[in-house]
């Protein structure tokens, strides 16, 4: 939707992400997605509004400890609850896929890696 007085907010969003705590969170999300911090920063700037970006460290604090082992390894709550990058349903589906793959005999690490790739596809699409 087009607004009057609309401005390009990317520079200001980048200023928010420069802060010490935001920098740590960006690196953490990059590690979860298995991409470079710069790419993670780009995704965050494009997907989140300014207020959500400001609140990112606190939301991640609330979301980090949630969920079981698989969910924590995939960082599902960080992506669904904290950053709103993917919807909660899609997050649950990704977790279910990974669990299914592990149960069907695939090695845990490989299954997690595949799950991660799937989530990245979901975010980029």
């Amino acid at each position: 939707m087009e607004y009057l007085y609309e401005k390009d907010l990317r520079r200001m969003k980048l200023l928010i992400l420069e802060s010490r705590r935001h920098h740590a969170v960006t690196i953490e999300i990059a590690a979860i997605l298995g991409i470079k911090p710069q790419a993670a920063r780009k995704i965050l700037i494009e997907e989140c509004d300014m207020l959500l970006l400001e609140n990112l460290p606190a939301r991640c604090d609330a979301a980090r400890k949630k969920g079981n082992e698989i969910e924590q390894k995939l960082g599902i709550h960080m992506l669904t609850q904290a950053t709103h990058l993917i919807s909660p349903d899609a997050g649950q589906k990704a977790v279910a896929d990974v669990i299914e793959k592990i149960e069907s005999g695939l090695e845990k690490e490989i299954a997690l890696e595949e799950g991660r790739t799937g989530i990245l596809e979901l975010i980029r699409s």
Binding site: R20, R21, A58
Partner: peptide, 18 residues
């Protein structure tokens, strides 16, 4: 050397708006 401040309004305005 390094400082980050997390103020309460950030969380409160965010939860208020969303």
């Amino acid at each position: 050397l390094e400082i980050a401040i997390q103020t309460p309004s950030i969380m409160n305005i965010q939860v208020c708006a969303h």
